[in-house]
Amino acid sequence: MAEILIVEDNEANMRLARLLLMNAGHSVLWAADAECGLTLAREKQPALILMDIQLPGMDGLAATRLLKRDPHTAHIPVIALTAMAMKEDREKTRLAGCDAYVIKPLRYKELYEVIDTLLNPSITPPT
């Protein structure tokens, strides 16, 4: 399976995401803030990044914009993880460069579907 980076400052959310990804056969890298996440993304080149939007210091949207501007990380799909569920919040994540959007609390079927779609572009997303 794939190596996935989780950037999440909440310990409980991090544990849940790690467990879900590991149960699906993925290997997991993790960072508690955007700066560490950016460094890991550049160094390890994960197949995908789960990015919390509300992070201490630099938020996940700013971090995603930096990732997408960097030729070494621009190709890495980013899934926004957020408790914000308004239409304009989804648009903000899209404008920042996020490839998908998953609302917390995480629902494993939705998370797996989004990951599978991004890692295997030939898969048609469910309607």
Results as ranks from 00 to 15, higher is better:
Met1Leu: 12
Glu3Met: 10
Leu5Ile: 02
Ile6Ser: 05
Ile6Leu: 08
Val7His: 01
Val7Met: 07
Glu8Cys: 05
Asp9Ile: 03
Asp9His: 05
Asp9Ala: 07
Asn10Leu: 10
Ala12His: 11
Asn13Met: 08
Leu16Tyr: 11
Leu21Met: 14
Met22Val: 13
Met22Gln: 15
Met22Ser: 14
Met22Tyr: 02
Ala24Lys: 07
Ala24Phe: 04
Val28Tyr: 06
Val28His: 06
Trp30His: 14
Ala31Arg: 01
Asp33Asn: 15
Ala34Gly: 13
Cys36Ala: 15
Gly37Glu: 03
Leu40Ala: 13
Glu43Leu: 12
Lys44Ile: 02
Gln45Gly: 05
Ala47Gln: 14
Leu48Phe: 06
Asp52Ser: 07
Asp52Thr: 06
Pro56Thr: 00
Pro56Gln: 01
Met58Trp: 06
Met58Leu: 15
Asp59His: 09
Leu61Asp: 03
Ala63Val: 08
Asp70His: 06
Pro71Phe: 01
Thr73Phe: 03
His75Ala: 13
Ile76His: 04
Ile76Phe: 07
Ala80His: 08
Leu81Cys: 14
Leu81Asn: 05
Met84Arg: 15
Met84Val: 13
Lys87Met: 13
Lys87Tyr: 10
Asp89Gly: 07
Arg90Gln: 09
Lys92Thr: 11
Thr93His: 11
Arg94Trp: 10
Ala96Gly: 13
Asp99Gly: 06
Asp99His: 09
Ala100Trp: 01
Tyr101Glu: 01
Ile103Leu: 09
Ile103Pro: 03
Pro105Gly: 05
Tyr108Gln: 14
Leu111Gly: 02
Leu111Thr: 04
Glu113Asn: 10
Val114Thr: 09
Ile115Lys: 00
Asn120Asp: 07
Pro125Ala: 03
